[in-house]
Design a protein around this nucleic acid. Structure first.
Lengths: 203, 203
DNA sequence: TATACAGGCGAACAAATGTTCCCTGTTTCA
DNA sequence: TGAAACAGGGAACATTTGTTCGCCTGTATA
């Protein structure tokens, strides 16, 4: 699969990219790994590339791309197999992708329990994708008379309503003279538990 | 702050890094932006660096590091201010950080409604941090007689129980002869809605 | 016991890549 | 109404960086 030596190379490269934001040159790898010949490094990189442990195009300076698979997603766990076995892995979550693809989106920190029946609690983070339009039945963020609120959008013959998901709250009827705007559609709900913030806090 | 032109450069560079895993060379930027002189690009990069929009060390090939702030987190929105105004930004979520720091963690795709009163629904993803120990009251993933389940851990004078959060389910009492193991502690709950998967799907 | 393969050294070489200098405009702002 | 900053061109130049070609040492393994 991979020798110890190869693992060390990978670790060095990953660390370098982590520290610098770009990959090391062959000579930098040589120095970092205590080698004196660049050809040794090149051969090692070739082996790692062949093994699929990294992507690299020839002749491109600092062109090492560490294929970070992301966080494994386990679905139904097969009985009799170790939980984290390959067979149980359904796919990988690439969270970095989200950062990039969320272009313009933002997290709204939920304030209050008005959506608790939709399993959205006080303190949750919801990812809002900005949009001027929203469809009946979708949950979104709205601005009503200067206040921002997260609700289910309802539009029928009786008008536009923002529906809470909690019997203690009343639907909001949007009147003709209200200041009203659709901010965006909710794409994701995220909740931190048990110190999850440590691993993942707003900076 | 930043001119339109500068924004376009940044977008090109970000896209390039996203596609290739390493940053573009000056000549590649020139080609991509329709310029014919490398010095034009260099000067633009210098401006962007001065402005703090990117990090770059001199003389380093493909050494552009895009300082991704992450996704903005909005908390209480101030009345009378545009929703996405700076003032409303509480911080930034660096999702890539999670990928790195989750070391060894994995997402478990929730199967069933047994934890619905904890606002964890069928189909949600929960981030599990592997751990052989768990504290009374924490939610975690457990292996019981070959099955993996997400429950609240309870341990008192009556023994160890795995508590569902749904009246339709019964607590699981761990008997002396059961195959039982703590897999890990739940650190986060994540739910995709309204096509959120498109922006963020297991690959 | 040959053969394959992981690891390495060094030097010469070929590209790829960044930098500098000198120009031409336009826009912005004190 | 100048000075400063933004944008871009072209060419020569200096480095950085990757590649190639021998040659050497162990360790497996068929």
């Amino acid at each position: 699969m991979m020798t110890d030596r190869q693992k060390k190379f990978l670790d060095f490269i990953e660390g370098f990219i982590n520290d610098n934001g770009y990959s090391p040159s062959i000579r930098e790898i040589a120095k970092g790994m205590g080698l004196s010949s660049t050809s040794s490094v090149k051969k090692m990189l070739d082996r790692l590339t062949d093994g699929g442990f990294l992507n690299r195009s020839n002749s491109i300076a600092r062109g090492i791309d560490m294929p970070s698979k992301g966080i494994p997603v386990l679905g139904r766990i097969k009985a009799g197999v170790p939980v984290e076995a390959e067979e149980n892995i359904e796919g990988y979550m690439k969270l970095d992708r989200l950062t990039i693809r969320s272009g313009g989106g933002f997290f709204l920190k939920v304030d209050g329990d008005s959506m608790k029946d939709e399993a959205i609690l006080d303190g949750d983070y919801v990812l809002i994708k900005p949009s001027p339009v929203i469809t009946h039945g979708q949950i979104g963020a709205f601005r009503v008379n200067g206040e921002v609120t997260l609700k289910t959008f309802r539009q029928d013959s009786e008008g536009i309503f923002l529906m809470p998901a909690n019997e203690d709250f009343d639907p909001i009827l949007i009147g003709e003279y209200d200041d009203f705007a659709v901010i965006g559609i909710m794409k994701m709900v995220m909740r931190m538990t048990e110190g999850g913030h440590n691993a993942f806090e707003p900076a």
